[in-house]
Design a protein around this nucleic acid. Sequence first.
DNA 1: ACAATAGTGTCTCTAAGACAATATACG
DNA 2: CGTATATTGTCTTAGAGACACTATTGT
Lengths: 218, 218
Amino acid sequence: MPTVICTVDVVLLTLQQGALQVALLRRERAPFAGALALPGGYIHAQEDADAQASAARVLRDKAGLQSPYLEQLATFSGPVRDPRGWSLAVAYCALVPPEVLAGAPFTLVPVAGLPALPFDHRAMVDAAVARVRSKSQYSSMPVHLCAEPFTLPQLQAVYEVVLGEPVNKVSFRRKMDELAMLEPLPGALQTGAAHRPAQLYRIKPGFRSSLSTSSRGL
Amino acid sequence: MPTVICTVDVVLLTLQQGALQVALLRRERAPFAGALALPGGYIHAQEDADAQASAARVLRDKAGLQSPYLEQLATFSGPVRDPRGWSLAVAYCALVPPEVLAGAPFTLVPVAGLPALPFDHRAMVDAAVARVRSKSQYSSMPVHLCAEPFTLPQLQAVYEVVLGEPVNKVSFRRKMDELAMLEPLPGALQTGAAHRPAQLYRIKPGFRSSLSTSSRGL
DNA sequence: ACAATAGTGTCTCTAAGACAATATACG
DNA sequence: CGTATATTGTCTTAGAGACACTATTGT
């Protein structure tokens, strides 16, 4: 039985300058050495508890990231996607607030206007963006793009960027209340803004690594 | 780099006796020879165009099934799920009307009340059932469980079994109309029933291997 | 004509969105 | 006190479900 090349790739998304961005790395080794690509690597059967652990290891080793939100996306495979041979890549989607990428060696690129990417990384990014957009319509997924603590107007802005359209303020607050995943902190945001300060919230412990969903939209 | 065992497994679901059923096969070879398990097999790098093709090949070889609805579910991996070593299985979900399983060597088991299954096949079945339930709320997915042509009352019954709850007739018909995926056939169902016959429908060509979705539920 | 289910019209109720009033910071 | 944004109250409107009426077959 010919061997199958088993890898993981991570579509690491964040929000910067009002746009969804993918974190790319310049490849050090062949194939496609020197090209910008998704962070990825071989599955290490000796050390990884499963493919998700491989993805977490890749993020840790290449960027020092500890346990961001990480979700399996899909698996891509075939004889031509990798010039080394028949390969299989389990793609993961990770979401982080931009703050945690400070110092990491990534090149952030807006998901609108991607350059050509090696392998089938373009399809992986497209799948990740579609997944995030879709889940943002009925779940708490976008909170993972927001550094804590945050205000509801800030979080609403994140949803609006991800969804690409304005969100009704009253409905948005009703939904956040319904998801029952945020808790207010005693202090308010003051940052010297010449207007009423907004309440700061954090994610309730227990929702940190999971999503809260609503049966209906928004 | 130690080798990773690469396989595919198919959760083949159908509707029989008013319940969602999984198709299981008795394993001929070790590990777990003699046990009921999901149909699956190695990825054949020499012949398969990708993992989905492997899954289609498994269904073809083991049951003579040609191109049923087939969707990638998730990938399961780790050192302990298969006694042969560190393994990775791409799980697929297939939906077929019960008629096409006539003569196939499957043992159908209701998804409620599964026996113990080898590997992590139980988790795969659970994932498939969750996926089908979820997608049934807003898409045309369950039509693939219905042999054509079918009537709207028949299709509604399929949705009700999958969702596990009664469905509003008026809303259901509004949604089917909105999905714009069915077309009526000239003839009506008469089967000697002592009541008004129902219109027969078929899936519009073009929706055969895809789903139609609605932004809102049902 | 009767029984039984198919198909449709319409009312009610829930929930999303629009609008706008009130609250609270800073200058 | 004026301005700007946060937060909340309430009205409007769209859509899902309930209900019931009409349609059409076989007996």
